[in-house]
Every structure is written in structure tokens, then in C-alpha cells.
Amino acid sequence: MAEQEVKLMKGNEAIAHAAIRCGADGFFGYPITPQTEIIETLSVLKPWETTGMVVLQAESEVASINMVYGGAGAGKKVFTTSSSPGVSLMQEGISYMAGAEIPGVFVNVQRGGPGLGTIQPSQSDYFQSTRGGGNGDYYVIVLAPNSVQEMADFMDLAFDLAFKYRNPAMILSDGVIGQMMEKVVLPPMKPRRTEEEIRRECPWATIGRTPDRDINIMTSLELQSEVMEQRNIHLQKKYDVIKENEVRFEKTNLDDADYVIVAFGSVARISEKAVELAREEGIKVGLFRPITLWPFPEKEIAELAKTKKGFLVAELNAGQMIEDVRLAVNGETKVAHFGRLGGMVPDPEEIVNALKEELL
């Protein structure tokens, strides 16, 4: 077995390296802090000279999402990256892709808002990501990494899920995970698929006429209401399958816990230390980390609620994921919130104090 190569790099850099290694065909993006290192790293690595991967800086976020729409519609593994205000501009294209069932990958390294806000970390795009920020009834598969290693690992996973379900997939990171440096083992190199492999694996793709198939037209437009309703029913059935099969989460110190901290991304990292500090004081608390924010692990939280005295939802926003936790708990036990706003990152002690004040 070949020895794994361990590297030290930022989360943003890990995204760029992993994309090349998992056989991505193209990247289309636009610079915005705190995710610009992704574009910069791709520019330095020059994958067009080694794997043939296209790297293009578009003139705007709107242009980049429509380039992803076109490339993914041809069955190509393409992706874009941005940060909160830029992702807002992409919502129309993401909705179009969901409606046309086109698989693309998006990386959002969140910053504080609303509006242009700050370049500091935030988690206030939870609603924008998990609720379908564009028009219509749709969902995006959302993965929330809490380490540089997961930034690298989730690129391949996001592409796999996007193509498995013909649905947009998002890696919802934040400025802490994107900018911090950690050791990471990069995934092995995968070759890019050939045109013949794409035709075989993606018969829906608009890759041109073949002897036995006419050109496919990829669109989310349908002028007949009764046909559009059937399309929507089909999408809802697909979302039910995703919710049944693709929920991911992590549990820490929950077997004997009286209380549960629920957190994702960088706040989950901070909450790990908060759990340690609280237990040193004799408070039996554990951590529940949703890895998929959609589909949300509602069944698992509902089961925990039957035996726990309370939940503290910790996040870098005014209270967004807490709504999903409350729905899952369904009144079985108390649910409280701790949040910091505008790019402020809490200390573990602040989370412990909130646990004491709100639940004990």
C-alpha cells in the first residue's frame, strides 16, 4: 500500500487540490474574500496543462453560475466557488439547475452579512442554502465540513451525490475553515472521464446527436401547468429518496449526556472544546454535528430529544439552524440558542456559559 502524502494547507487550497484530483472537468468563478485562495491555487497549479481541466475567471458570479449550468448540462464535472453575497447572485442559476435536474457543485465560504457585510466568518447562509434560495420548490444537497480534511474529502463526495441524484450539491464552509491551516491527506488522482464514458453514464446530457439518440434539451421551463405539476411531484419524490439515504451526522459524548450542543462547521470545532470544559465542571453534555444540513438529520435529533434534558444550538448567526432543531425536537425538551453575529467567533467558554444560563 502506497504511503499517504500529508500536506499542510488552508481549507481553500484543499478544495482546489481535491477538485483536480477527483477528475473535475472545469471551474468557473469570480474572486471574493474569504474564498479567493481557491481560484488563486487553481491558477498556480495550472491543471489545464496536466489533466485538461478548464479554469476560467468569469466576469461575475452570474456569469460563472451560468457557465456551470452549461458545462454540467453536458455531463461534465464542473464547479464554482464564492462567498455569501456572490452566492446570492447565483441563486437564479441554482434554481434553474435544480429544475432541469443538472448536477453541479458549489462551494460557499461564508462571510458576515447582510448585504456586503464583512469579510469575517459567518454561518448566516444556512437559510439561503438549505431552503433553496432561488424560486420554486427545490432543495440543494448541503455538506458542512468542519476541517481542512473534510474540505478535501467533500469535493469528491459532492460530485458523487450531485451526479447520483442529478441535483445541485453545495459545500457550505465558512471563513474559519477556508482560511485555517491543517494537515490534510489529499485524495488519490482520478482520471477525467472520456466523452464515451460521459455518454454512457449521463444519457440525459446535452452532448450532441448520436446514431441512436436525438439531442437532449436541458430546461426548467414548462408552459403547461399540469406537466409542470408532474415535474414538481417527481422532484419531491427524489428529495424523499435523498432524505432517506443521504443523511450524515457525527455524535460525540452523547451516550451519558443530559444536554446536547448542536453545531456545524467551525462552531462544531469550538463546541468540542466547550463539551470538554463543561464535563470538567461535572456537566454531562455531548455534541451532535449535522454533516448534511440538507437533508437535515431530523430523525436522529428527534430520537435524542426523548432522553435529553435540553439542546443548545450554537451557530454564527441570529438563529437559523435552530428552527430545524425545534421542528425535530417537537416540544419534547427545551431548545435554546447561542449565536454571535457580524463575523464574531466565540470562545468555548462563551458556549459553556450559554449552556449554564439557558438550560441548567
Rank of each mutant, 00 (worst) to 15 (best):
N167E: 10
K76H: 13
H234W: 12
T194N: 10
T118L: 11
Y126V: 05
V313G: 11
K273T: 15
S60V: 09
H234S: 12
F159K: 01
S124E: 15
R209F: 11
V345Y: 09
G319L: 07
M97F: 07
E13D: 13
K77F: 08
Q224N: 14
Q128F: 06
I215V: 15
T206L: 06
Q230F: 03
Q123T: 04
E298D: 15
G75W: 02
I38M: 08
G178A: 12
K237A: 15
I261R: 08
A205S: 14
V227F: 09
K7E: 13
A19L: 07
L254Q: 07
T292K: 11
I102S: 01
E222F: 05
N66P: 03
I38K: 00
E37F: 04
T80Y: 06
S95D: 04
I94C: 00
I283D: 07
I207E: 00
I215F: 10
K77D: 09
G343V: 07
P348C: 08
P47C: 12
P187Y: 10
G136I: 02
P85W: 00
A268E: 01
L327P: 00
E332K: 15
K164N: 08
N353Y: 10
A2Q: 05
Q120E: 12
A328C: 12
E226L: 12
G175V: 05
A74P: 01
K334E: 15
F127L: 03
P188D: 15
I65S: 02
S84F: 02
F79A: 03
I141A: 00
A19F: 02
N108E: 10
G117T: 01
F296N: 05
Q110W: 03
V62N: 02
K251G: 09
P191F: 10
R209D: 08
L235S: 05
Q120S: 09
F106V: 06
G115D: 03
A314T: 04
V285F: 04
G286K: 02
E272G: 09
M53L: 09
P103W: 01
K76W: 09
M151P: 03
E244V: 00
T292P: 07
F264G: 01
L277G: 02
R326V: 11
T307M: 12
S122G: 14
A305G: 14
Y239L: 11
E300Y: 13
S82P: 05
E315A: 04
R231C: 06
V285G: 10
N353F: 13
M53Q: 04
Y30I: 08
G112P: 02
P297R: 05
E349Q: 15
S173L: 07
K10V: 05
A336M: 13
A318P: 01
G29Q: 06
L304S: 07
E197L: 13
R209M: 12
V109E: 06
D214A: 13
V78S: 03
E150D: 07
L157G: 00
G93K: 00
G70H: 06
F154E: 03
N330I: 08
I65K: 00
K306T: 13
G310D: 10
I15Y: 02
A162C: 10
L143K: 01
C202L: 02
G115Q: 03
P290S: 11
Q91L: 12
E350W: 07
T50I: 09
H234Y: 13
Q123Y: 08
K7D: 05
A74L: 13
P191T: 13
V241Y: 02
V176H: 01
V241E: 14
Q149V: 09
A354H: 09
R131A: 14
K309C: 13
